[in-house]
């Protein structure tokens, strides 16, 4: 699990996810009220580059604030729904435009949890269930969800 977290953090900050957003700051052990996230990486969509890419980013890219939350505790379908609601409230408070929620686990997820993820279709949130043992990733059907699949696929 720890190795996966490190790989994911690296992929977000200096790896393939930089094509999506500039994830520049990573917190470990991030707390939202009584919910403990293993990791939270935040950033923006204004990518810093050199001359042309900086100009392109300034003129074309929206100034969205984004984050990726990682939650590795055991969860039920009902817990997942309340977790997502809490996350949406927190996003509003923090001024985040969209967020990824990564749920890694050493083993398969229950069918209920998988179905719950498939039904969650908030535009601003992407959810990925990461089965580390089977090296499988399933995401929710929102645009943000579909997009995140390949960036969280960084298995040890």
């Amino acid at each position: 699990m720890e190795e996966y977290l490190l790989r994911l953090e690296k992929n977000l900050m200096v790896g393939s996810a930089r094509w999506v957003a500039d994830f520049r700051e990573s917190f470990r052990g991030y707390q939202i009220e009584d919910t403990h996230f293993d990791m939270m990486v935040r950033g923006g969509m204004k990518i810093k580059g050199f001359l042309l890419s900086r100009l392109f980013s300034f003129l074309v890219m929206p100034n969205y604030q984004v984050a990726c939350f990682v939650y590795s505790q055991e969860l039920e379908a009902s817990t997942l729904r309340s977790l997502v609601r809490r996350l949406l409230e927190h996003m509003k408070e923090m001024g985040l435009d969209w967020a990824w929620l990564v749920i890694p686990k050493e083993g398969a997820f229950s069918e209920k949890v998988q179905k719950a993820v498939e039904k969650i279709d908030y535009r601003e949130i992407g959810i990925a269930l990461v089965d580390l043992a089977a090296r499988e990733v399933s995401t929710n059907p929102s645009y943000v969800g579909k997009q995140m699949g390949r960036h969280v696929r960084c298995f040890p």
Partner: peptide, 26 residues
């Protein structure tokens, strides 16, 4: 360095702080 400082601050993100996970990032 981040994990070392977390230890000094009395913050341990996930319990056991083994050496392996500290290596080679980024």
């Amino acid at each position: 360095l981040r994990f070392e400082v977390m230890k000094f601050m009395g913050k341990n993100p996930t319990g056991s702080l083994n050496e392996k996970r500290l290596d080679n990032f980024p």
